[in-house]
Structures are given as structure tokens and as C-alpha cells.
Design a protein around this nucleic acid. Structure first.
Lengths: 208, 208
DNA sequence: AGAAAAATCTGAACGTTGTTCAAAAAACAG
DNA sequence: CTGTTTTTTGAACAACGTTCAGATTTTTCT
């Protein structure tokens, strides 16, 4: 017997609608431009209704950010144009550089949506949901694969660590490069810098 | 005739008191824990008085952040233990690694105060004051010096760019390494990673 | 020194936030 | 169709940064 009631469906429907609307305003006006009341108007529900399908505004933001994470993943897969293997050191470094540049391109193309992932802090005491962490890990996997070619002997744990560091370094260059606070750089120059940093770290990890 | 009135002195006094109080609460409870009313109570003035000596709360935060920048500078100078020169490539790389680790140590020791520098965004339309930019540039100078040894032929402009990229990469590793959102790492491991990244980029810049 | 004028400070009040919850509306069961 | 439960609603609440008319202090002038 279909215990999947009508209301349940409507709730999930509203949730999805809310997430999409929130995503749109974040993309247009940034994380700080997201207002509960405006959202309610936009999706055509009462303010209180938001709290029926979502814990918090923070919860809603996490849902949006998870979608951005997924979009980043799709973007990276696409831009990597499936170089199926070729396990040489030079090839691995090239793939790392490709990922780094792909990351920059995504960040640049999806400015405010991308920034929301790092600008947002959930209120202290609350910790990151598992499904969000899972998405993060999945992304690191794309970095670990080429790294394995550079350090065949390394343990999985060590590989995860190296992937994190490589990502963090590239992320830093992208973040501060696009930042207003530190005077944003032309994107072509950023391309060079990101590629140079990724290549240097790749080489560094190859020899050690 | 001393046109330096009594009131002017009191104003500047209040300003300094406010900045120090703001710094203390940021250090203790983070940027989000800063409240105008609490500040007023703490320094013993009316809420409105804050706006006599400071444009905004954002303005106040910028003043605090500039002090943090200065504290970082002092910390780096101290930890660099004045290696006066020795223009070898290996020495230059070692100095870069020293700066990177010094940066990590400062960030780790001054957690919330350091985070406030990057978490804070001033309302859109307003741009970073000159005196803040000047402090930033001064810090990059410390990175440029060893870099010059690695790339003797590079122009000042190019050197500034490389310094920025190196700083950004190291900053990325430190930021995400200490971040709650990406599961914070033990500081000893972070030390290794920061040193490895700085060294790799240093070597990369030396040969190119 | 005293009184008028100017500058300064004060804190209640304003406009916005996110969030709640009594009451209305809708959905369901018999 | 009627009573019961569930769901939705939006006015009300608390907390925030910011303002500004009035009180207070400081300066100026005779």
C-alpha cells in the first residue's frame, strides 16, 4: 500500500524548489544576498514553510553547496577529456595540471556559487553532514589517481593526504587570485600561475 | 596655539580602545561573535559613540585585521632569525620554507584572529582601504627577497606575481588544513605538507 | 566669570535579519 | 459527512547594525 503519501511528495518537491531558488540567488547576488523572506516569495510559500522541509538556512546552503560540488565534478570530468591512462610521470603531471586549470575555470565561470562553498561557515557546534563530506572525498579521488602514478609505493592514507595538499595549494592560488581583497588578477595570468604551481608540486611529489 | 583639542585626543583614545576590545573578542569568539552593543559595554561608551570614531563595524574589523597583519609580520621577522644572505639556491629555498612554516605557526597560534582576515568581506561597493593594501604589500616583500635569488633575471612585476602565487599556495594548504569544513589535520602533519609544498614550488621556480 | 553657541555624546527607536508557534487549513479515518 | 490528526501559515519575537533628536559637555565671546 502506497504509504508514500501525497504530502511527503509535496514536501520533497518544495525542498527541491527551495534549493534551486536559493542556488539561483546565490549565483546572482552571493551568499550574503540570500534572504529567507525573498525565498518564500520566490517559491510561493510561507516563510515558516521553509522550516518544514529544511532544518535551517544553513542546512539549505549546504544543500546548494553540495550541488555546486557535484557541478564541479561534472565540469572536471568533462574538461579532463578522458585521458585513459598512459602511466608516465610526465603524463601524470600533465593530468594534474589539467585538473588544476579545470578547477580554476570552474571557479571563474561560477564565481559566487563557488565562493559560497568556502565563505559559508555553519554555526559552531554543528558539524558538516556526512553526505557533504562524501562528496568532498569523491572529488579528491580525481586527484589521487594521477598522484598514484607519481608515488606508486605510497599508502592510500598518504595518497589522500598528498591529494589534499595539492588541492589546497591550487585552491589557494585560485581563491586569492580571484579575491577582491587582494586585487583580482586577469584570468590568463592566473592560468599560468595555477599551471606552474600544480606542475611544480607534481614534480616535487614525483621525486620525493 | 594647541588646536589639538582635548576632545580629539579622547576620540583617538576611544578608537584605540575599541580596536583593542574588538581584537580581544575576535580572538576569543571569532568574527561572528563581535557585537556592537557588547563592545560599547566593554569599553564603557554608548553604542552610538562607536560611529563617532569609526565609519562602520566593517571599518573597525579592517583596523583589527591590519593589526593582525602587523603581528604576522613581527612573528615572521622573529622566526626567520635573520639569515642575512648566502645567495645560494638551496639557501633561498630554505628561507622560503622557513617563511611558510612561520606562516603556519602564526595561523595556528592565532586561529580566530588570523581567520578574521580572510573570512571578513566588506559590503559590496566598498573597496579595501589603501593603508590595508600597503600592509599586504609589505608582507609580500618578505617573500620576494628569497625569490629574487631563485630568479635573478625576473622583473619586479614578475617577482611580485610569483611571490603572490607562492603565498597563495601556502595559504591554501594552511587554510584548508586548519579548516573545520574539511576536517582539520594534526599540526605536525601540516608542517610537513606546508614545507613540502613550499619546497616544491621553490624548486619549480628555480629551474624555470 | 558667566552666558551664548557649537560640538559631542547618548540610548531609545528604526529597519532588517532568521526563527517560532498559536491558530487556520487541509488531509485523513471511520 | 463528521471528528481527529497533520500540515501550513504569517504575525510576532529576539537580535542585529545603524541613526538621530535631544541632553550634555566643551568652547567661544564679552
Amino acid at each position: 500500500m502506497a504509504k508514500v503519501t501525497n504530502t511527503l511528495r509535496r514536501r520533497q518537491n518544495l525542498k527541491q524548489t527551495l534549493v534551486r531558488a536559493a542556488e539561483k540567488t546565490i549565483a546572482k547576488r552571493g551568499l550574503a544576498g540570500l534572504r529567507a523572506r525573498e525565498l518564500a516569495v520566490e517559491v510561493g510559500c510561507a516563510v515558516g514553510a521553509i522550516y518544514n522541509v529544511v532544518e535551517d538556512i544553513d542546512d539549505l546552503i549546504m544543500l546548494v553547496n553540495e550541488r555546486t560540488l557535484a557541478a564541479l565534478e561534472r565540469s572536471l570530468i568533462e574538461s579532463a577529456q578522458v585521458t585513459t591512462g598512459a602511466a608516465g610521470t610526465a603524463d601524470a603531471i600533465e593530468r594534474l595540471v589539467g585538473l588544476a586549470v579545470g578547477y580554476l575555470d570552474f571557479a571563474h565561470a561560477n564565481g559566487l556559487r563557488w565562493r559560497a562553498m568556502f565563505d559559508h561557515r555553519l554555526p559552531k557546534g554543528r558539524d558538516v553532514p556526512d553526505w557533504y563530506r562524501a562528496s568532498q572525498r569523491r572529488l579528491f579521488g580525481y586527484v589521487e589517481a594521477p598522484l598514484r602514478a607519481l608515488q606508486p609505493g605510497a599508502s592510500d592514507q598518504r595518497l589522500a593526504l598528498l591529494a589534499r595538499s595539492l588541492f589546497s595549494a591550487v585552491h589557494g592560488v585560485v581563491e586569492l587570485g580571484l579575491d577582491e581583497k587582494l586585487q583580482p588578477l586577469p584570468v590568463e595570468i592566473l592560468h599560468e600561475q595555477v599551471a606552474a604551481v600544480a606542475a611544480a608540486i607534481g614534480r616535487g611529489m614525483a621525486q620525493a
